[in-house]
Design a protein around this nucleic acid. Structure first.
Length: 549
RNA sequence: GUGCCCGUAGCUCAAUCGGAUAGAGCAACAGCCUUCUAAGCUGUAGGUUACUGGUUCGAUUCCAGUCGGGCAUACCA
């Protein structure tokens, strides 16, 4: 990568000047007049060296040894920026690298041999996934891809709890709906799950067993039926988005394995847990920002959610991952801190755990906001959204924004203007390229765009051609930096520029020209490389690369 | 009350550990299809980056305060 090269020659120059090695920041200027790469290196040094930044910059440049085939020009500008202009030949050479590496271009071996665990979705099987889950679901898919792109061996994990009050409630709700088939006046539990899917589950049970279970005192059957039905639905929805988990971890396993009790014993042994009012409390340190102690085992003897969560993270650490990622909505913003505090208190290294908190999504239908509560019958299933606007659009929409900002999702808009969805801008660029390639094969049989011998790189010189190549060459660093901050939306921001540059190129540079075979082949090469970058980017964010639109 | 996140164009959002003239899409207006896909391109208009102060060569970015919004503050998960 060009930046690595610049960092090394700049540090060599500093060495000559007797200045200690710096962590050199290299940026892409917003204005092309400022070159292809810029550094503010001289500015922070000014204070330290007590010299004018312009003078420092001049000294650095004077002592710079560089390859003139890569750097065509260096300029000083503004208060002391050093601007580098990269030679066109560098970008043309990079085009060949793209074509050679193909779908491996942009991937790095930075974390090769490292194992990552990504846990997300993790909805309990009390009902279908709804819109509120959408952001997390799609985000996780993209982040998993991103981690793989930088070399991680990724385990995709789903953690669920099929015991506890919520599931009891599910059992009661299904039973009540079942009884209502027999007797419409049978009362429905006050805080039961009111979604229609409960009625469907009840109907399935009735179809099979008729009224033979009407005097049942054991709700386990109904709970299990609900769980199976809901899980099947959840997996179908995930399947529509192309999401497959490698591991489904069940909370109850933590009890049977004895890990929960081990954790309790360890807290007691360390003097961090105490009994009060019949419950077991965990001491929370004020210095760590906690204002009061938390219950980890209720007076009824059941643990609170914190305890299994702690045990679960201990278990994940013990499984030996180099990176453990959790994705939660901001409604879990506080609880993960308690969990990590507990895990850390037990003596485990929590530095490998990275918690990604995304802000909530506000759903609107026109001007009306839509409530996402599972207790409400208006809950909007994610499945329906996918059917209506398409998997690609859903994936794209939820991933295109930074996680720490609130997101407004207008369902009406998504439905009505689905063909104006920004995802199509990107996909259209890809489809257009495919169209050109088809045309080349069908109508220009002698124009072999795979040919190496006939590729005259000197013909690439128009502003649009080079502008496109310059952005394509940035893909690897975009992947690296997106992965480093776990921010797939940056890939989308980048791909937007790629698509924009391609469309510009397309309008001003006719690719296939019967009169000019050599130029056609050179431009076909550009098309192929742009197609490859779009495809590789789409693979990461998790959308398809259509051949036609 | 306290903690976390946020406040950027009419709307939804970008902005590379603080960088040069704050950018896209949608909506609006004016153009471009007898040539590879017009789901595209070109142009116009739209901003005191919520507000006040501070830090410095430089602040949308960092700090303090004010205002406004979201989430959380359970022996619910």
């Amino acid at each position: 990568m060009i930046k690595t090269y610049l960092q090394s020659i700049l540090n060599n120059s500093l060495k000559k000047l007797g200045i200690a090695e710096q962590n050199i920041q290299l940026d892409t200027p917003k204005d092309e007049k400022h070159g292809d790469v810029t550094t503010n290196l001289a500015l922070p040094l000014a204070k330290e060296l007590k010299q004018k930044p312009r003078d420092i910059a001049q000294n650095i440049v004077d002592n710079l040894d560089y390859n003139h085939d890569i750097i065509s020009k260096i300029e000083l500008a503004g208060p002391g920026f050093i601007n580098f202009f990269i030679a066109d030949s560098y970008y043309v050479a990079e085009l060949l690298n793209i074509l050679t590496a193909a779908d491996k271009y942009g991937k790095s071996d930075e974390f090769i041999g490292k194992r990552a665990n990504l846990e997300w979705v993790s909805a309990n099987p009390t009902g279908p996934l709804h819109l509120g889950h959408g952001r997390q679901v799609c985000l996780g898919k993209a982040i998993a891809n991103l981690l793989e792109a930088v070399g991680y061996d990724v385990t995709r994990e789903y953690y669920y709890n099929d015991a506890g009050n919520q599931m009891e409630n599910l059992g009661k709700s299904v039973y009540a709906r079942y009884m209502q088939i027999i007797d419409p006046n049978y009362p429905f539990p006050e805080d039961g799950y009111v979604g229609d899917y409960i009625k469907q589950i009840a109907q399935l049970i009735y179809d099979e067993r008729k009224d033979s279970l009407k005097n049942s005192t054991d709700l386990a059957f109904f709970r299990k039926a609900g769980e199976n039905y809901n899980f099947k639905g959840i997996r179908q929805t995930l399947n529509k988005l192309g999401i497959h988990h490698d591991v489904f971890s069940n909370e109850s396993q933590l009890y049977t394995d004895g890990l929960i009790n081990q954790v309790i014993d360890e807290f007691i042994r360390k003097g961090m847990a105490y009994e009060k009012d019949g419950a077991l409390w965990l001491k929370m340190d004020e210095k760590a920002g906690f204002d009061k102690d938390k219950v980890i085992r209720k007076s009824t003897g059941e643990p609170t959610y914190r305890l299994p969560d702690m045990a679960y993270h201990v278990q994940k650490i013990q499984r030996g991952y180099d990176l453990i990622i959790d994705i939660f909505g901001s409604d879990h913003g506080d609880t993960y801190k308690e969990v990590l505090y507990g895990v850390q208190s037990l003596g485990y290294d929590t530095s490998k755990i990275k918690v990604i908190i995304h802000q909530m999504v506000t759903f609107k239908e026109g001007s009306e906001s839509v409530k996402m509560s599972k207790r409400s019958d208006k809950a909007y299933p994610l499945d329906g959204l996918i059917d209506e606007v398409g998997a690609d659009a859903v994936q794209f929409f939820f991933v295109m924004r930074a996680v720490n900002t609130h997101l407004d999702f207008d369902i009406e808009l998504a439905k009505e203007h689905s063909d104006k969805n920004p995802v199509y801008y990107l996909q259209y660029a890809h489809a257009r390229i495919c169209g050109i390639l088809r045309n080349a094969e069908e109508n220009f049989p002698g124009f072999d765009f795979k040919s190496e011998a006939e590729f005259n790189t000197d013909l690439i010189k128009s502003e649009e051609e080079l502008g496109l190549l310059k952005i394509l060459a940035k893909f690897p660093e975009e992947v690296t930096s997106s992965a480093a901050s776990y921010e797939p939306h940056k890939i989308i921001t980048y791909l937007n520029v790629v698509a924009e540059r391609f469309h510009k190129f397309y309008h001003n540079n006719r690719v296939l020209d019967a009169e000019n075979r050599e130029l056609s082949i050179a431009r076909l090469k550009i098309c192929l490389s742009a197609k490859q970058i779009l495809k590789n980017g789409f693979d990461i964010i998790g959308i398809s690369a259509p051949e036609r639109m």
